[in-house]
Design a protein around this nucleic acid. Structure first.
Length: 847
RNA sequence: GCCCUCGUGGUGAAAUUGGUAGACACAAAGGACUUAAAAUCCUUGCCCAUUAGGGAGUGCCAGUUCGAGUCUGGCCGAGGGCACCA
């Protein structure tokens, strides 16, 4: 029998698909569309197993939908602006454009080897002017809608390299190249006003029925709507009417307030700029990183302003004003009142500066006199005390009443605040989309005329200079308006998240020159019916894309999309064991060999290898497997099959060589069985035709259902089972040839989305049209069912009875089973629980 | 530190959503075929029992229930995100 020649057959079909443009999607209003999108890759060099998994999952869905008759859009492109290109450029002295294009070429070739049903005619690359010129136009539109503005914010500043660092370039507070302690520096930067849509972005999470709950919850927490109260504190200074406005979610604890803390960026802090102690304090603060994590774990420190405010409800009490490193200007009003007894941060701060700690909430079962706070704040629910008119109320009632009184006395009001911050889009980097803004001699920012787009990146750039490459370019930033007025270009580029916030629109009209998308295209294809990608994008990328849709729709009658992704699926990572040599250096899996179970040595000098835990594949730990090498060895179908078979797609999968090789063997088995069935000549009995038909019908039902639910690993198990059954039937000659062939054909159709090359090859001999088999729900019904017999909840036997048997019959039959009756003698049956067609449970009592 | 998720045999996992735990695979051990190897096929799989059968058992501890992998509370462990990696 002919052996299945992977290389030949996979190449053959890939060529046919390419030649016949099988995967090209054309707008067709008479056909129901399905837009299947996987997150496009960053062209980092070669594809990795994470890509293989992501795109295999997507391809299964796309092929399945196509077989079902949908008009499928399944495009691919490149998220090709970004930091690594600049790093690579510096290391290899290669222009980012060349490096990026070369990587794209390599990765495209590799993706094609996988046999993905991608429409390559729609390929886009965000670093090309054909893409980013539309993004520049969007920026100008947003600017004109006042959804873009400039403000000062902090960046990580490397004082030695004179450059802004990304968070990942800051390691233990130091620059990754310079090793110098990184400082926080204020820069004027561009922002998208995402905060404006906070409520909308939160509300519409409810519309996303087919998104994982965990992603929606993460976004909800990220937006972070909180209900609270603004309170004005009068500064205690002669002839001063100056007030400090604070925001709090716990107005109930107002009687426990013992200090006021201001953000270092609060307007009042400006008054201390010439104070030596304040300068020292500021310097100290500037050593803390810019990430939320860094701020959260940093020691709480403050600067005493020697100013006081009057407590609005306690005449005799004045509270000191501090400037503190844990208060953020971005959140609330940039000022808080500290209630140390009921907030851990406030307590740490109060203990450090010897401030008053007055508890005002106690657990309901604790005596007020004995309730003390020392090192742990009490943040739970309870009863108010030490709080005048709030005494004896619960926390929630006290919050209500406090807000009422504060409003009535006119020193504050109820207020809703969001944690979500505006999106900073400025980057002081070369390899990004230039921001289409110029500044006139007065420093006024003006949008560039549409006719002058795209603003092209200069090709001749020196990335070895310190600082912002575009700003350092000798001529690029100098330009003129059409009036002849001299202006200077914005030298910041856009965050690459902007590129990926609308690429799914571009895929609908990839070649349209006039605008970023064409209405007739997006009206047909949008929204994305299924979006698939890594869970690491659960918040930022997805939230920014949701924002971008709203920003485009804002004051725009011709665009009414709000939610870009109808359904979302987040897949897990691909993991592999890690290996180190005796010098604690990472080793690649192909540098080692197995001696015995769990015992590995280096191939080169047979030295002992230390096996570490299985972790997400990453270049830094060298626990990577090259997909192209694997495809060469086992073929794309085997790799696809393995990727889907071992773990549910949403969970992490362990790469296993045995697993791939088992997949490879199974592909061979399927091929052999296919030929055996098709070539079978001798006449056989048809005694079990109906059983095979029923089993195949059930398989069709299960595979369809499991595909819909992304339970691809179960689909594989279903197919294994039906394969085993076919083997049994063919070995025992119990099915007629015709039935065998008809039923097998359905199985080959079920294989189409998973192993497209093999499945197509199997069908060449029958020359049938491709289709998705339908199941007969009548044939799914069994006449009999198995009923579990329990005594006191323990299984003691099983009965096979007709469906819907009466309880009395089940009881009688059960008692006749020896292993059941022996547990029913010498006891009385208190009651029995009968679940129709499932189980009967006898509850007994000793006599 | 904050937010989120996950935890089932030696391994990856399945379980009609509260009703037979371990389907389907991988690995291992034993066997068949073979001069041998490869390939292929069969059997086994925690504890007690020759068998029939029984017991323990879904990270740990409690709880709800006739019945819990599934629901509730607490604990432990692993992973993801934290706004300039993408």
């Amino acid at each position: 029998m002919e052996r299945y020649n992977i290389k030949l057959i996979e190449k053959k079909w890939q060529n046919i698909w390419l030649k016949e443009k099988t995967n090209a999607s054309i707008l067709n209003k008479n056909k129901k569309k399905f837009y299947c999108l996987e997150m496009f890759p960053y062209p980092s060099g070669k594809i990795h197993m994470g890509h293989v998994r992501n795109y295999t999952i997507g391809d299964v869905l796309a092929r399945y939908k196509k077989l079902q008759g949908f008009n499928v859009l399944h495009p691919m492109g490149w998220d090709s602006f970004g930091l690594p290109a600049e790093n690579a450029a510096r290391e290899n002295n290669l222009h980012p454009k060349i490096w990026t294009r070369k990587n794209i070429q390599t990765m495209k070739k590799q993706l094609k080897l996988l046999g993905l049903s991608l429409d390559w005619d729609r390929e886009i690359s965000t670093c090309e002017p054909e893409y980013y010129k539309h993004q520049q136009e969007f920026f100008i539109e947003l600017f004109k809608k006042k959804l873009v503005y400039k403000k000062d914010t902090y960046v990580n500043w490397d004082p030695k390299e004179q450059t802004v660092l990304a968070n990942e370039q800051v390691i233990d507070g130091k620059g990754w190249r310079s090793g110098v302690v990184v400082e926080r520096k204020k820069l004027s930067q561009w922002f998208f006003n995402i905060k404006k849509f906070s409520q909308d972005l939160l509300d519409d999470l409810n519309k996303l029925k087919n998104w994982p709950d965990k992603v929606k919850l993460m976004q909800k927490n990220w937006i972070g709507k909180s209900f609270g109260c603004e309170i004005n504190f009068q500064i205690d200074k002669k002839n001063s009417k100056e007030k400090i406005k604070v925001f709090t979610t716990r107005p109930d604890t107002i009687f426990g307030a013992s200090f006021i803390a201001l953000s270092i960026d609060h307007p009042i802090a400006k008054n201390f700029e010439n104070n030596k102690n304040f300068q020292d304090f500021k310097l100290k603060c500037s050593k803390t990183g810019t990430t939320e994590e860094a701020l959260a774990i940093a020691e709480k420190i403050g600067f005493n302003t020697d100013l006081f405010v009057q407590h609005p409800l306690k005449k005799e009490t004045k509270l000191p004003i501090y400037i503190a490193n844990f208060v953020l200007m971005d959140y609330g009003t940039g000022a808080i009142f500290g209630c140390p007894a009921h907030d851990q941060r406030d307590l740490d701060f109060a203990n450090k500066y010897k401030l008053n700690v007055l508890p005002v909430v106690r657990p309901s079962d604790v005596d007020p006199a004995s309730f003390k706070i020392s090192n742990e704040a009490y943040t739970g629910d309870g009863i108010l005390f030490n709080s005048d008119f709030l005494d004896n109320l619960t926390v929630s009632k006290a919050i209500e009443k406090a807000i009422k009184v504060i409003t009535k006395k006119k020193f504050g009001e109820k207020k809703i605040t969001f944690r979500l911050k505006d999106w900073g889009v400025s980057r002081q980097r070369y390899w990004g989309c230039p921001i289409p803004i110029v500044y006139n001699s007065k420093g006024k920012a003006l949008p560039v005329d549409k006719k002058d787009l795209p603003i092209l990146l200069p090709e001749d750039v020196d990335l070895n200079l310190k600082g912002n490459p575009l700003a350092k370019h000798p001529t690029w930033k100098f330009t003129k308006l059409s009036s002849g007025e001299k202006v200077i270009r914005e030298t910041d580029t856009l965050d690459t998240f902007v590129d990926s916030s609308w690429y799914f629109l571009r895929f609908c009209s990839p070649k349209y020159e006039k605008y970023g998308y064409e209405s007739k295209d997006i009206n047909y294809w949008m929204p994305v019916d299924q979006y698939i990608g890594g869970v690491e994008h659960a918040i930022l990328h997805l939230l920014y894309s949701r924002f971008f849709m709203r920003a485009l729709a804002y004051n725009n009658k011709n665009f009414d999309y709000t939610e870009p992704f109808e359904s979302l699926f987040t897949q897990g990572m691909v993991c592999h064991e890690t290996y180190k040599n005796e010098f604690n250096q990472w080793l690649y899996p192909d540098e080692i060999e197995k001696k015995s179970e769990g015992n590995f040595v280096t191939k080169k000098d047979k030295k002992k290898v230390i096996v570490g835990p299985s972790e997400s594949m990453s270049k830094s730990k060298k626990n990577i497997i090259d997909p192209e090498e694997m495809i060469n060895m086992y073929g794309a179908d085997s790799i696809r099959w393995f990727m889907l078979s071992d773990s549910p797609p949403e969970r992490d999968v362990q790469w296993s060589q045995e697993g791939v090789s088992a997949a490879f063997k199974f592909i061979q088995k399927l091929w052999r069985l296919n030929n055996e069935i098709l070539e079978k000549k001798e006449s056989t009995s048809d005694s079990e035709d109906i059983n095979l038909k029923k089993a195949v019908n059930k398989t069709v039902y299960r595979v369809t259902k499991n595909l819909e639910n992304f339970q691809y690993n179960v689909v594989i198990a279903n197919l294994h089972e039906i394969y085993n059954l076919f083997c049994y039937h063919i070995a025992n000659n119990k099915t007629s040839n015709q039935t065998m062939k008809n039923e097998w054909e359905k199985i080959t159709m079920l294989l189409m989305p998973l192993t497209p090359h093999l499945a197509h090859e199997c069908c060449t001999k029958t020359n049938k049209k491709f289709y998705w088999p339908k199941f007969d729900s009548k044939l799914l019904k069994e006449q009999n069912c198995k009923i579990v017999i329990q005594v006191n909840g323990r299984k003691r036997g099983i009965l096979e009875l007709p469906l819907n048997s009466k309880e009395t019959l089940v009881i009688t039959k059960s008692k006749k089973i020896d292993n059941v009756s022996k547990y029913l003698t010498d006891v009385s049956i208190v009651k029995n629980i009968y679940i129709k067609n499932k189980l009967i449970n006898f509850i007994t009592k000793n006599e």
